[in-house]
């Protein structure tokens, strides 16, 4: 019993990271109908930004986080201008391929600048964690779960109770009408990309102390986050969170009970199962084609 609780805790922690990246996926998808295959690289960049500011430059942890958030927001905006904006009137395929190109570009730029060796990042707090009976609650996992919870609540507040949030929703539902009402559509999409990059960056900062910071970090997280968003129901915000947590728990349990080497396969097996049995995901509407 204690083992299961321990695994659940760990799974929820790692799942929360997937959920954050999946959330970024979903927000961009809803605003632009684009599936951003470079979303994972945002997390990788966030991790590296932390390493550079706090380890290499020796800045305080809080300042590192602050700088990372600002850099990520700026990066999201540049990403929008370079990768999405020139292709905004084109069909699905060119844009997807362009984001794949961006993902290669980012990965290899970092690889060229920083080399292939993984680096470590210390946790947010020095304190190792608490024991709850036989279950050990690692502090970094606690931080991840807490931060994810706070972010989800903040995001809920932002979209439900601020005017800018409403405008962003309006843009994702009907761009043409939004522009007719005088809403700055281009600006709102820019904001969506910036915010998604920040979400990805935070996920990277959070997960960096657990996994090593390496150029492979992005792809590893992104694929599972993407699987999470499909399992949850593509384009659905609560679905992305639920999907992330499910995958985190499933792969933790699977690694323990079934096979460690195949740990990374469980997310995909789960995805296949969903696509065959319930392609619309947990919360999604039935997929249908409009004439």
């Amino acid at each position: 019993m204690a083992i299961i609780l321990q695994l659940l805790f760990t799974g929820l922690g790692i799942g929360a990271v997937y959920a954050l990246v999946a959330l970024g996926f979903v927000l961009i998808y809803r605003a632009t109908n684009v599936v951003n295959f470079a979303q994972g690289q945002f997390a990788m960049l966030g991790g590296y930004c932390m390493v550079i500011t706090t380890v290499d430059l020796g800045l305080p942890y809080w300042l590192g986080i602050l700088i990372t958030l600002v850099v990520m927001a700026g990066f999201g905006a540049i990403f929008n201008l370079g990768v999405y904006y020139p292709l905004r009137h084109r069909s699905f395929l060119p844009v997807v391929i362009s984001t794949i190109g961006a993902s290669i570009l980012i990965t290899n730029l970092v690889l060229g600048l920083y080399g292939p060796e993984p680096t470590t990042l210390p946790g947010v707090i020095d304190f190792p964690g608490v024991s709850l009976g036989a279950v050990f609650l690692d502090s970094q996992y606690l931080v991840i779960i807490a931060v994810t919870l706070i972010l989800v609540l903040l995001q809920y507040f932002f979209f439900e109770h601020t005017l800018v949030g409403k405008k962003m929703q309006a843009v994702s539902q009907d761009k043409e009408v939004a522009s007719l009402l005088g809403i700055n559509v281009t600006g709102m999409i820019m904001l969506t990309f910036a915010y998604s990059a920040v979400l990805g960056g935070i996920a990277g900062v959070l997960v960096a102390p657990i996994l090593f910071v390496s150029v492979g970090l992005g792809a590893q997280i992104a694929l599972k986050a993407f699987a999470a968003s499909i399992i949850g129901g593509f384009g659905d915000v609560p679905g992305a969170i639920a999907g992330g947590l499910i995958i985190g728990v499933a792969e933790t349990l699977g690694a323990f009970y079934i096979s460690v080497p195949y740990k990374d396969a469980f997310a995909f097996i789960l995805l296949f199962a969903f696509l065959l049995i319930r392609p619309q995901g947990i919360f999604g509407e039935k997929v249908s084609q409009k004439a």
């Binding site: 990768v83 292709l87 060119p94 961006a102 993902s103 290669i104 570009l105 290899n108 730029l109």
Partner: peptide
Amino acid sequence: QFYLAVYGLAVILIM
């Protein structure tokens, strides 16, 4: 080591 980065850039530019 940057040649793959150029590769990625090429994909975007082609698109």
